[in-house]
Design a protein around this nucleic acid. Structure first.
Length: 434
RNA sequence: GCAUCGGUGGCGGAGUGGUCAAUCGCAACAGACUGUAAAUCUGUCGGGCAUAGCCCUACGAAGGUUCGAAUCCUUCCCGGUGCA
């Protein structure tokens, strides 16, 4: 019995897009849905109440970051991630798998979730298997992978830490999100085919271990909860126990790099294991995303919810929706907002630009709906805040951007339900990418 | 008035005979950012052009010393400080 229930309400003709509802212990998520990222138990710059008003239904936090700070025990003692951060709706946690990549292969390099330049694939090489005191510094990275797990050097204080699939699941149980992800290895697109295959196989083994350990913990937690309930615990404890009884859902992650055959294989394998949902991960160069996604989705069962990890930009989200993805998370909305850029119907506007100093267009007029915030601001005012380094500039831009993406996805859902998703997507793309 | 220290690119501030169109910071201008190592990072930043190079004008002003001066000397102008 899964902790979540997914129901498809309507499919778009001519593509894989679908609208559905995902019921979690903390509420219903109408899909497709954008999941704002709150890595360290906060969506940077946005209060939970405001986030809800912008239309957010669910937030995603990060295992690696919360494990390091403040430590999962504190979050658990607070009553779980949602209670800790003051968010009443559904929550998710990422497994720390992405940090294997960003602190490992991608550390100190220009590669990230996306890479624009033509990538030079590295020749096959011996991977360090055993962690050595100096390996991390030798390789200029903070994470070193072996078959059992990953050894991290904390980016905060340099201390040494070890994640295995079991440990990641254990931490994520303590964090208590409604949905969490299996521990995976996100590879660099510069790795050769042989390594992509090797990493994918490892991710599959880790997926199995994550799922097994989740089942085991789930069993023990429920048994313990029943015992405590029977012993008539306090009201607070009972409420906490109800969360435990309602349980958590776990999503497995498809990898396979840019290679369609590996993506298909990975999708089939992950789908066969019995996860509550599927995540599609990876680091891409732009042109590979589409083919890798299509290849993977073609192998996935219809009835499981699908989450496109770390996506994305407006165009990529619509691409994902058209390819049958249901959930999206991305840091871009808050990050570019914090850095002074905003989404508009006609693309991204860099408010630091000289031309915005005297542009008295209303912020709400460049968005997708009239206003996300209930107060009108001009671009000139925003440009001033951004230019003068005021934190409110970052806050308002972040709110605007998260609101923009939430509106975009909500609009896509409406369009699917009304049978005009293709037009909706085409209209948006035409205006956005001039 | 005397003494003393100082006047460098939009600002602050290095440099004290050649490798100086001049370190660096700020501002400005442009760009990047897709499961957050990020309120961060990158590039440009005297003028001109055929822009991995070349030319011109420049370190308060004017002279001078020197093969060569932002750097040394003289005078003047301006500012800080001290003494009258």
């Amino acid at each position: 019995m899964s902790a979540i229930q997914f129901k498809i309400e309507k499919r778009a003709p001519g593509c894989r897009a679908r609208a559905g509802t995902l019921t979690t212990p903390h509420g219903v998520i109408q899909t497709p849905a954008f999941v704002p990222v709150g890595t360290k138990a906060n969506v940077k710059g946005i209060l939970p109440d405001a986030l809800g008003k912008l239309g957010a239904q669910v937030v995603l936090a990060n295992t690696y970051h919360l494990y390091l700070q403040p430590g999962e025990k504190i979050v658990q003692d607070a009553g779980g991630l949602g209670k800790f951060m003051g968010w009443e709706g559904p929550t998710m946690t990422d497994s720390g798998g992405f940090q294997v990549f960003s602190l490992g292969a991608a550390f100190g390099k220009t590669i990230s979730k996306f890479t624009k330049e033509d990538l030079e694939v590295s020749p096959p090489s011996e991977k360090p298997v055993i962690y050595d005191e100096d390996v991390a510094s030798q390789h200029g990275q903070l994470a070193v992978i072996d078959d059992e797990g990953v050894t991290f050097t904390s980016h905060l204080d340099g201390s040494l830490h070890r994640f295995t699939p079991e440990r990641s699941v254990e931490i994520q149980h303590a964090l208590g999100a409604d949905i969490f992800f299996a521990f995976d290895e996100c590879t660099s697109p510069t790795e050769p085919y042989e390594y992509q295959k090797e990493a994918m196989d490892r991710t599959h083994r880790w997926a199995k271990r994550s799922l097994d350990y989740h089942r085991r913990l789930e069993y023990e937690e429920k048994k313990q909860a029943r015992t405590l309930l029977l012993a008539s615990a306090s009201g607070h404890a009972q409420s906490a126990m109800r969360d435990v009884v309602s349980g958590q859902a776990i999503f497995g992650i498809v990898q396979g790099g840019r290679h369609e055959d590996l993506r298909k294989e990975s999708a089939r394998e992950i789908a066969s294991l019995g996860f509550d949902g599927i995540g599609i991960g990876g680091s891409f160069s732009k042109e590979d995303m589409r083919s890798a996604l299509a290849a993977a989705v073609g192998e996935l069962p219809e009835e499981l919810p699908r989450h496109f990890l770390g996506i994305g930009e407006p165009g990529d989200i619509l691409e994902g929706i058209a390819n049958g993805m249901d959930l999206f998370d991305c840091v871009a909305a808050t990050r570019i907002g914090r850095h002074g850029s905003i989404y508009t119907r006609h693309g991204i506007a860099h408010l630091k630009g000289e031309k915005y100093r005297t542009d008295f267009t209303l912020l709400s007029d460049v968005g997708l709906t009239k206003s996300h915030m209930g107060v009108e601001f001009t671009l000139a005012y925003m440009a001033h805040l951004v230019r003068s380094g005021e934190m409110l500039g970052s806050v308002i831009c972040s709110m605007h951007n998260v609101g923009f993406i939430l509106n975009l996805v909500a609009g896509a859902r409406e369009a699917i339900l009304n049978g005009r998703f293709d037009d909706y997507r085409a209209d948006f793309i035409r205006d956005y990418y001039i």
